[in-house]
Amino acid sequence: MTVYSLYIYDRHCNCVYYHDWHRTRRPKPANEGGGFLPGVARAVSPIPPASASNASTPYTSPRHTLSSSSGVLVAANDTQPQSAPPLLQTHAVTTPPPASYTSTGLPFDEESKLVYGVILSLRNMIKRLSGRDEQFVNYRTSAYKLHLYETVSGYRFVMLSDPNAESLRFVLRSIHTGPFLEYVVRNPLIEMDSRERGIDNEYFRASVDRLVRGLSIFN
């Protein structure tokens, strides 16, 4: 059993974060003008990685990290190059190279909309058939199991795992109460109601990666 991928949707139904692990068929890069927010994930960004102004980090937005290269505030008179913190170095080493993936043939912007459409349709169907007290938490197919965790503020955390996995709702809740609150909600440089960028905080991405890799289900 293992974990495949993680999606986070904001209150505007936009996918603001994506991360995958044991997924061997990664979606194609998002289409230009397809509603893809910058900073969601470098692997599915429509902008080629080589065009980034800073090759040491997947994202270059100074609004979401204290420094675009490391996430650490650097003194103005410090002329020494800043090395990446150990947390980021560990994340960089353990991430599989893009060459090991094949494409599903579906652009990421279309895939993320399909995933959101599925959870929204099933959520509405359950509420209409079973009443308002019932909640949609997961469903399973022969290929994967989808887990859903919704916050009061309207954010939806979606995780795809092996179909035989137990409920991972507690993992999604841990991501929300841990890295999400620490590096996103409490970060004054991130606009929580913004429709302009995804969550491009490197410390959040590295913390989520470490949390998921520490699970007993992760192989």
Rank of each mutant, 00 (worst) to 15 (best):
D209L: 04
Y116A: 02
S130M: 14
Y59G: 05
K127P: 05
R140N: 01
H147C: 02
F108L: 05
T79C: 00
V93T: 12
P58K: 05
M1R: 12
R195D: 15
L87T: 07
F157E: 03
R23H: 05
D162A: 12
A84K: 09
R156L: 06
S207G: 01
S153Q: 14
T57C: 13
R23D: 12
D200R: 05
S70D: 10
A43D: 11
I8L: 11
Y116D: 04
G33K: 03
S167F: 07
P179Q: 00
H19W: 12
N164Y: 03
V3L: 10
V115L: 13
A206Q: 01
S61H: 03
I8R: 08
R210L: 11
I199H: 07
E110S: 14
I190M: 13
N201L: 08
F180D: 03
E182F: 00
N201K: 07
R173P: 02
K113N: 13
L211D: 04
A206I: 00
F180W: 03
I47C: 01
P62G: 08
T102P: 00
T141L: 14
S216L: 10
V137E: 12
P179D: 00
R197K: 10
I119R: 04
F36G: 01
S68A: 07
R63V: 00
E111C: 09
L148Y: 09
S153Y: 03
Y101M: 02
Y203E: 00
Q80V: 09
Y17G: 06
L189M: 07
H12N: 13
G71N: 11
V40I: 08
Y4F: 15
L73V: 13
V184Q: 01
R23Q: 11
S207I: 02
N201S: 11
D193Y: 07
M159L: 13
E196L: 15
H147A: 01
S174F: 08
T65P: 02
Y203V: 00
V74I: 15
Y155M: 07
G117M: 03
V208G: 06
Q82H: 10
C15R: 06
G198N: 03
N14S: 09
G39L: 04
S56Y: 15
L6Y: 13
G71W: 05
V3F: 07
